[in-house]
């Protein structure tokens, strides 16, 4: 038991150190920042899909509402950035609460309903009729609050928290209960698991992560349009990174994000459509030949993957 705690703490420390020290060795801080964004988002997807089996295609909705929530709190109410970030996370949780009836749906229904919900949020936020509140399609400017260094370290903190939460879920009764529900909700309920409450709780944790990450992204980027933070590709990246590494593990999505996002940046710079093509093919091949992710390769050899 004690040894496990040490291993957990070590993982968090390694992740934090890696991203604190990385800017010394590699000057492209934006890339490192975005890599953290995707690690955190794919862990958020992982909490939901890996542990409860719900695939949130509309996960980007929480990211976008977090980005907008934090930005608007800074712009309209002059909140300091870190407080506004927490506010953005809280707004994402509220949205999660509002959308929690979606969890009554199963399988593909949930996936597509969440997609529809995120698009609906996007169309509301970017609607020209709400220009006075959200600046409509004209985007957000946070130039006065721009602080790339501080926002980078805030993101490191968010990432560390996310990793810690996933580790906690993996080790705790809560995580076991979630996995039991995923495999058979009826039996889990019979065994005394409060299915609806715990599932909703997982959903809101996942929403909070995306909201905080969205806020940090908005702060770091400081100038963005609504389609940048509600782009469906954000959900899809997070899902693919998770699947590639292996859902339900901690290291899987981490590995997936670092490898695939790194790859994205080596090939993706020149022409977006070539990247999209390679990516689409990669998804197809992945699903056809490695549906349980890279972690399954190790598991097949009998080793335990954290």
């Amino acid at each position: 038991m004690l040894r496990r705690r040490w291993v957990d703490a070590l993982v968090v420390v390694v992740v934090v150190l890696a991203f604190v020290l990385a800017p010394q060795a590699y000057s492209n801080e934006t890339l490192l920042f975005q890599m953290m964004v995707y690690i955190a988002l794919s862990q958020g997807v992982n909490i939901l899909y890996g542990f409860t089996g719900y695939l949130p295609f509309g996960y980007v909705g929480f990211f976008g509402i977090g980005a907008y929530g934090a930005s608007l709190l800074m712009l309209h109410l002059n909140w300091p950035p870190i407080l506004a970030l927490l506010g953005g996370g809280a707004i994402a949780v509220l949205l999660g609460l509002l959308l929690s009836p979606l969890l009554r749906l199963s399988g593909a229904y949930f996936a597509i309903a969440s997609l529809a919900a995120s698009q609906a949020v996007y169309l509301i936020v970017s609607n020209p009729a709400l220009q006075n509140v959200t600046y409509g399609p004209y985007g957000i400017q946070l130039v006065s609050q721009f602080n790339p260094t501080l926002s980078y370290y805030v993101m490191v903190v968010i990432l560390a928290l996310t990793v810690a939460v996933v580790l906690y879920i993996r080790r705790s009764r809560f995580g076991t209960a979630l996995q039991a529900m995923r495999d058979d909700p009826v039996s889990a309920a019979m065994a005394g698991v409060p299915v609806v409450r715990q599932r909703t709780f997982a959903w809101m944790i996942s929403a909070a992560i995306a909201g905080l990450v969205g806020g940090a992204f908005a702060w770091q980027t400081s100038v963005f349009y609504p389609d940048a933070v509600f782009s469906l590709s954000i959900s899809i990246f997070a899902i693919v990174f998770t699947l590639f590494g292996g859902a339900g593990t901690l290291l899987g999505p981490l590995f997936g994000s670092v490898v695939l996002y790194g790859m994205y940046n080596t090939i993706g710079i020149s022409d977006p459509q070539y990247f999209q093509l390679i990516y689409g093919l990669l998804i197809i091949l992945l699903v056809l030949f490695l549906p349980d992710g890279a972690a399954s390769l190790l598991k097949r050899r009998g080793s335990h993957v954290l």
Binding site: Y49, G53, L55, F57, G107, A108, A111, I236, I239, V240, L243, P272, Q273, Y274, F275, Q276, L277, Y279, G280, L281, L282, I283, I284, L286, V287, L288, P291
Partner: peptide, 23 residues
């Protein structure tokens, strides 16, 4: 989990088609 996996698969297909159409 064919229901979920197929969603991801067809999404990949959709990306490929879209990319080819842009080209």
């Amino acid at each position: 989990d064919p229901e979920m996996i197929s969603l991801v698969l067809f999404f990949g297909l959709s990306q490929v088609i879209e990319a080819l159409a842009v080209m």
